[in-house]
């Protein structure tokens, strides 16, 4: 497992602050995210890791009163620049949410939704190809290929979450953000999702927020420890977990608080 990336970072953040009204949620965060690495954000609840994650595809825009300062770039492009198109940005930086949120539509329509709105398929057969490959990559094809017209909400929780991952990767994003994707799932479903993350690594830059340190250790190559809206420590996962530089990191991963 490589510990230091040898490519240019996929996304870079420099001096990012997030405010909700007067309250500062993120304080001067800087970080690099690499394409062939899974990056995990860990930290106690309320430390701002999810908030920061949502700045990476500008989902904070949908929250009234939220304000982001600093510099976040995707392949060197400033994503908060006025000329940056937020619709395109979100297609390039996909997101998977904490609770599975399939649309109340059929499984097929759930996955086809993104490609359809972005016009990624020129024909029905091409669309079916995209859906199949997304479901296959999400490890769900075998389970659902005979019932693509069933409602997405009829699936089990773990299947729903994999459906949401399939939905996200169907538009062929460059980065996938995962906001505690396993927190609502049972251990077996969690294991499947983690396996999926392994398989997706290399194809997409993946950022995963988790409150489960074992999970961070299992799936990620780089880990950032958030505390009170700041990054306390960021480095190779093996280093963070075996040899943390900061006392607070050590306290957290050994379970002294959090």
């Amino acid at each position: 497992m490589t510990t230091e990336p040898n490519t240019a970072p996929k996304m870079t953040a420099r001096g990012v602050n997030v405010f909700y009204g007067d309250k500062q949620a993120i304080d001067d965060v800087s970080i690099d995210v690499y394409r062939d690495h899974v990056t995990a954000f860990i930290g106690p609840s309320g430390c701002g890791k999810s908030t920061f994650l949502r700045t990476l595809n500008r989902m904070n825009d949908t929250v009234a009163g939220a304000r982001v300062t600093g510099d976040i770039r995707l392949d060197g492009e400033d994503i908060y620049a006025p000329e940056m198109d937020v619709v395109q940005l979100r297609a390039r930086v996909g997101m998977v949410f904490q609770k599975p949120n399939p649309f109340p539509k059929s499984i097929f329509d759930n996955v086809a939704y993104g490609p359809k709105i972005h016009g990624l398929a020129t024909s029905k057969s091409e669309l079916e190809g995209i859906v199949e490959s997304a479901l296959t990559r999400a490890g769900l094809w075998g389970e659902v290929k005979d019932r693509l017209q069933d409602s997405g909400t009829a699936l089990s929780g773990g299947q729903q979450q994999r459906l949401c991952i399939a939905r996200a990767i169907a538009v062929d994003p460059e980065t996938v953000l995962m906001d505690e994707p396993c927190s609502a799932l049972d251990p077996i479903a969690t294991a499947k999702i983690e396996e999926l993350i392994h398989e997706l690594r290399g194809r997409y830059a993946i950022v995963i927020v988790t409150h489960n340190m074992q999970q961070a250790a299992r799936v990620s190559q780089r880990t950032a420890f958030f505390h009170l809206g700041k990054i306390v420590e960021y480095g190779a996962t093996t280093d963070i977990f075996t040899n943390p530089r900061e006392e607070r990191t050590k306290d957290y991963i050994t379970g002294r608080y959090g």
Binding site: N57, M59, T62, V87, Q88, L89, R90, A91, R92, G94, M95, F97, K99, N101, P102, F103, P104, K105, Y113, G114, I117, H118, C164, R167, A168, V171
Partner: peptide
């Protein structure tokens, strides 16, 4: 309609009107 639906659609790069017409109204 849970706001997760709306977020899910916006996060895929749908415009607000696409989200309303194709996700919120059907739901």
């Amino acid at each position: 309609v849970p706001s997760a639906m709306r977020d899910g659609s916006l996060a895929l790069g749908a415009t607000p009107s696409e989200t309303i017409r194709k996700v919120l109204i059907p739901a």
